Simulated assay, not measured.
Amino acid sequence: MKIYKSETGARLLRERYLEALTSWPVPHDEVRVPTPEGETFVLVSGPESAPPLVLLHGSGSNSAEWAPRLPSLAERFRVYAVDIIGEPGLSAETRPPLDSDRYAHWLDAVLDHFGVARAAFLTSSFGGWLALDHAIRRPERVAALALRCPIGLGPMKKGFVVKAVFLALLGEKGRRKSVAGTLGEPAASPIVEHQLLVSANYRYRTGPFPVFDDAALQRLAMPVYAVVGAEDAMVDSATTKRRLEAAGARVDLVPGTGHSLPDSADLEFLTDASANGDFTA
């Protein structure tokens, strides 16, 4: 199945992304990396000698998600903002099965292209699932994990799906309310406006997303920090917090916050991990 609902919609979303790249906040290189899953688009910024940091955005998004944070990140790290395959960015549209090892091989190819043996990861939502999958399968390649509202640790809330379907039947007003509730953002927020545009033209991945078992989480030997929203409409944040803490992670549960999070302590965590030598291969 194609990931876009029409060629017109695909072109519209690409044009919006390319427009955002013209005002990228830091000097950068745009690199198209060959991988077993097709070409992958990566934005590279920051000092070449700085510790490597991979950014993985959420579902229905692309690396433009990280633009507001790039100035502070690129001061301290060599940043690789990766457009995830099968998402509305500039990478290949392929979607390997989530219960396979193909995403790990894909990330291996991206890291190998840049000669990066070991990197830290800063992620959002589905990007967190990908980073956890890679860290469990390739622990020697992951220096630290900073996860924002990761999925794959607690069950997706069933009530969210039922409510979303009901609100979608109410037309534009219902869809706006559904997106705003999902993100925990005001209905008039620019973030909600953008996601409405995406949902009108893009086919989201359908679950269920595999949940990592306790044995897999115990293989996370690297430093792990996560931040989750207490009012997340999609993800059971309490379970996420409990399971990650049992695996040795530090987790912040932000009250009154949904799936769209404010800035957190992840930059401080990554800086400390770098200073403590956790990036050393």
Score class of each variant (00 low, 15 high):
181 G>P: 13
101 D>Y: 02
163 K>Y: 04
224 V>Q: 02
47 P>F: 04
189 S>I: 08
238 A>I: 05
239 T>M: 06
121 F>S: 05
52 P>Y: 05
43 L>Y: 05
7 E>C: 07
166 F>C: 09
250 R>M: 09
158 K>I: 14
249 A>W: 00
248 G>Q: 03
216 A>W: 01
3 I>C: 04
220 L>R: 02
69 R>K: 10
11 R>K: 15
203 R>T: 07
58 G>S: 11
194 H>I: 12
59 S>W: 02
265 A>I: 06
254 V>R: 04
156 M>H: 13
110 V>G: 09
147 L>H: 06
243 R>N: 06
183 L>T: 09
243 R>P: 04
84 I>M: 06
185 E>W: 15
11 R>G: 00
252 D>M: 03
116 V>K: 06
262 P>K: 04
130 L>S: 01
280 T>R: 14
55 L>V: 01
227 V>T: 10
152 G>Q: 07
246 A>L: 03
194 H>Q: 14
233 A>M: 07
261 L>S: 05
7 E>M: 07
81 A>E: 00
65 E>L: 13
27 P>N: 06
250 R>I: 11
22 T>G: 06
64 A>W: 05
217 L>D: 01
70 L>D: 00
62 N>H: 09
234 M>C: 10
280 T>E: 14
136 I>V: 15
195 Q>N: 15
278 D>F: 06
7 E>Q: 12
58 G>Y: 13
208 P>E: 01
228 V>E: 05
243 R>G: 07
151 I>G: 10
280 T>M: 12
58 G>F: 10
263 D>A: 11
214 D>H: 02
82 V>M: 05
137 R>M: 00
182 T>M: 15
179 V>A: 14
172 E>N: 13
198 V>C: 07
98 L>V: 06
44 V>Y: 07
186 P>V: 02
107 L>R: 08
95 R>L: 00
138 R>H: 07
276 N>I: 04
159 G>F: 09
62 N>Q: 11
61 S>Q: 14
74 A>V: 10
267 L>P: 04
210 P>Q: 02
70 L>P: 02
207 G>W: 04
27 P>Q: 02
192 V>I: 14
199 S>H: 11
79 V>I: 06
193 E>P: 09
266 D>C: 06
66 W>I: 12
111 L>F: 08
249 A>V: 02
65 E>D: 12
110 V>E: 08
277 G>P: 14
123 T>S: 07
12 L>I: 09
194 H>R: 15
121 F>D: 01
89 G>I: 01
160 F>I: 03
151 I>Q: 07
192 V>Q: 14
266 D>H: 08
256 G>H: 15
269 F>Y: 05
111 L>C: 10
41 F>L: 12
227 V>N: 06
29 D>K: 14
165 V>R: 14
242 R>F: 01
258 G>E: 13
38 G>F: 05
153 L>Y: 05
176 R>A: 15
125 S>K: 07
66 W>S: 08
255 P>D: 08
237 S>M: 03
89 G>P: 10
243 R>K: 04
141 R>A: 13
202 Y>F: 15
30 E>F: 10
106 W>H: 13
86 G>M: 01
145 L>K: 02
138 R>S: 10
175 R>N: 09
263 D>Y: 08
19 E>Q: 11
22 T>S: 13
220 L>K: 02
95 R>F: 06
42 V>D: 11
230 A>H: 11
237 S>A: 15
206 T>L: 13
271 T>P: 03
124 S>Y: 14
220 L>G: 03
